[in-house]
Design a protein around this nucleic acid. Sequence first.
DNA 1: AGCGAGATGAGCT
DNA 2: GCTCATCTCGCTC
Length: 193
Amino acid sequence: MTVIPRSFYGCDTVDVAKKLLGKILVRQINGEMISGIIVETEAYRYKDDEASHTYRGMTKRNRAMFGQVGKAYVYFTYGMHYCVNAVARSPDYEAGAVLLRSLVPQQGIDFMMRQRSTSDISNLTNGPAKLTQALNVTIHEYGEDLTKQSGLYIIEGLKIKKSDIVSGPRIGIKKATDKMWNFKLRTDVLSKL
DNA sequence: AGCGAGATGAGCT
DNA sequence: GCTCATCTCGCTC
């Protein structure tokens, strides 16, 4: 089990979004491990990306996206949901992050079921706000270092071929829909997990 | 299985 | 005030 190093997050946000597919998000709570394979991501960049939280510059909320790469950017939305991003950008950009949209549960499935109040495994972590609820990730995890084995981190997982990745427009946004910055594993690859 | 609405609050104009 | 990187439930087909 190898934790992904910080250098991994220092490349272009869009590339990191693709490369995060197949990696494993790990949550450690009171010694218990809860984890899942990352199977869907989205890239959000800077002033060239109208849909990004950083499009209009730095605020108290989005400051993590300008900070050190490899850390968590967590935000609260729709009055009740949290979403997690991994801060990632090339040195050419001042801000950027990758939204984690979907996981395939690995460890701690009973914990996830309790968090989500359902025993339906396919409905545990198949959405950005579902996975944070399942892993109990909230604003407390804002700025967590994903490159250190702490409460929330990302480790090596599956080897993914480029041909196994499908890209499309990002979900749930009305701006910059021409950018094909949503990435997920092909469904036939998914079904073998 | 697909659609519409409601939940519910922070951030921005 | 209105928008929002969402989810769930209930109603209809």
